[in-house]
Write a protein that binds this DNA or RNA. Structure first.
Length: 566
RNA sequence: UGGGGGAUCGUCUAGCGGUAGGACGCCGGCCUUUGGAGCCGGCUACCUAGGUUCGAUUCCUAGUCCCCCAGCCA
């Protein structure tokens, strides 16, 4: 029997957690953690992990998810990122309560665990250079060789490790290594580095330390210290798991967390690697980490995406172990679906063309009823002013209309949304340039929108804004940043030439209906026939700035169109 | 060529020995007082070869392909 897709999210990790609870493992407790390194801003890929970890904690009674900063590398980390990451997790709608931790808070305890290991002769101070170590490590197919320092007496390692901490040695002269097996087929087990010397100021511990624990040492022990039950990470750590377990076991840590791996999120046409995102920001190829063209949470927020849409997307894509590349169209679908429900429809003209209704009284202003959201009757109606002089979209008029063009043209009729049917009776051009400067139309007073009698048919309805009431606005259209799939680009290849140099289009002469005067930053609206816009949440400009990210489909259509014209 | 993982519509994902389901996408139609909206219909998949079985996407065997690992990054 085929069963329909279950209503709630379910995946192998949730099943495993459920099985552990049922078996009474960890006394039925569920403790997860989201452990970012504060070396960049969070993006949609992190959202998958956040939704998973916090989601599992929320779904299980008494479950909790810690937020832990994995800040063990002083050279890449910055408090700016710590702040931004916390904002983003909260914005996404998750709460770590009082469970905010820093791996750097464990430095003293971690040092103690390391000393324990040395005393058990399970770790030693190695004095090989980095190059020598690489040489001794062997290759994928050849086993490694023992370091000449591997059998250093425990007392000597202990003393050396103490002096490493004291700052006696320069960077790179010594490391602390686990004593496991240099011939292991798993390279991670060939005496991995546990501590390295780094004379660098840490953003939290300052210069208190000049040795820093490596991920493979700090992470399992941080999990153990915090009583994490399920340590969920991405696939590339699968062959670190034996080391993870080794560290927890050999240090006699107070608790045995379990590492579980899942496939990270890849999105087509999105720059997701922190290295590349950093490069974009540092080379000023984008305006910052919150540039709406970026898949960062801050960027998505500025283009009007809601946390609800991101969470719905993350739930839908599922959790599995196979490598996956999700299509951008799927993300866009969830964004549209969400925005459709919540964004009021308003009228705006992006490229204005003046229209004068010759037979409409000069001083008259009518207030016409407009529906705020056809999908949500509770959103109600508003009034929009109508007058003799209007703006319509330049694209809605063609002097010489092609076959499939049904909007305004000389002698033709269209309906003005919420208003009257008008007919174009005259075209005024600049005598110098020949550019159309205004249209003259007549209106039919019998055709007012909502009038119950005799429905006249017109081929098209267009939007408009009353000129004397129009509110000036700026619109920024963000096209997809990339025109190629970056996953095909090798790490050392220059990838920035794939960026679309025309990815930002600024339209300065836009007008919007008066109901948008003084609208709050962050407000999401749908412009009639133009798509979803968000009043830039972080803009302090006098005139409202509307952001819109152009969908892949539209972007491609535009590219094709421009190619046809050539 | 060592080790660790993974293969189901174009893309994600379900299935746990009994007619391969959902979503996105795409195609067609309807709607037309806006649509990047809505409604209706259609499309395409079990990596290969053997075996076990009444019956295999599911179990077994062999193979193929893809991903990850040789940082004193995480």
């Amino acid at each position: 029997m085929t069963t329909p897709t279950p209503a709630g999210p379910s995946d192998f990790i949730r099943e495993l957690v459920a099985a552990d609870r049922a078996a009474g493992k960890h006394a039925g407790r569920v403790v997860t953690r989201f452990p970012p390194e504060p070396n960049g801003y969070l993006h949609i890929g992190h959202a998958k992990s956040i939704c998973l970890n916090f989601g599992i904690a929320n779904e299980n009674p008494g479950g909790i998810c810690h937020l832990r900063f994995d800040d063990t590398n002083p050279t890449t980390e910055d408090p700016e990122y710590v702040e931004a990451i916390q904002e983003d997790v909260r914005w996404l709608g998750f709460d770590w309560h009082d469970k905010l931790f820093y791996a750097s808070d464990y430095f003293e305890r971690l040092y103690g665990f390391a000393v324990t290991l040395i005393k058990k002769d399970k770790a030693y101070v190695d004095s090989l250079s980095a190059d020598q170590m690489r040489d001794y490590r062997g290759t994928l197919t050849d086993p490694g060789r023992n370091s000449p320092f591997r059998n250093r007496p425990v007392e000597e390692s202990l003393a050396l490790f103490e002096r490493m901490r004291a700052g006696t040695f320069p960077d790179g002269t010594h490391v602390l290594r686990a004593k496991i097996d240099m011939a292991s087929p798993n390279i991670n087990l060939r005496d991995p580095v546990l501590y390295r010397i780094r004379h660098a100021a840490h953003y939290r511990t300052g210069t208190a330390w000049c040795i820093y624990p490596a991920y493979d040492f700090a992470h399992p022990l941080s999990d153990a210290i915090e009583g994490i039950t399920h340590s969920i990470c991405t696939l590339e750590f699968e062959d670190h798991r034996p080391l993870y377990d080794w560290v927890v076991a050999e240090t006699d840590a107070p608790h045995r967390p379990q590492q579980i791996e899942f496939a990270r999120l890849n999105l087509t046409f999105a720059v997701m690697s922190k290295r590349k995102l950093l490069e974009l920001v540092e080379k000023n190829l984008v305006a910052g980490w919150d540039d709406p063209r970026l898949p960062t949470l801050k960027g998505l927020r500025r283009r009007g995406v809601t946390p609800d849409a991101i969470r719905a997307f993350c739930e839908h894509i599922g959790v599995a172990k196979r490598d996956a590349v999700v299509e951008m169209q799927l993300l866009e679908h969830f964004i549209r679906e969400d925005l459709n429900k919540r964004s009021p429809r308003v009228m705006a003209v992006l490229k204005p063309l003046k229209v004068i209704i010759d037979n409409y009284p000069e001083q008259t202003v009518e207030e016409l009823d407009a529906v705020n959201n056809p999908e949500d009757p509770s959103a109600g109606i508003r009034q929009v002013p109508f007058s003799r002089t209007l703006y319509i979209e330049q694209d809605d008029f063609r002097e010489d209309p092609p076959k499939q063009f049904f909007r305004l043209a000389p002698g033709r009729e269209v309906r003005l949304r919420y208003a009257y049917i008008i007919k174009c009776v005259g075209v005024v051009k600049d005598p110098q340039t020949g550019v159309i400067t205004e249209l003259h139309c007549t209106y039919d007073p019998e055709t007012k929108s909502g009038a119950s009698h005799e429905q006249r048919k017109v081929k098209a309805t267009i939007h408009w804004v009353s000129a004397p009431h129009a509110v000036p606005a700026e619109v920024r259209l963000y096209h997809p940043l990339l025109t190629a799939d970056l996953s095909k680009v090798t790490p050392d290849q220059d990838w920035t030439h794939y960026l679309n140099p025309q990815s930002l289009e600024r339209l300065a002469d836009c007008v919007v209906e008066p109901s948008l005067r003084g609208v709050q930053p962050g407000t999401r609206v749908q412009f009639e026939r133009q798509g979803y816009f968000c009043v830039d949440p972080d803009s302090s400009a006098q005139t409202p700035v509307f952001n819109r990210t152009v969908s892949l489909k539209d972007a491609w259509a535009k590219i094709e169109k421009s190619q046809r014209l050539r």
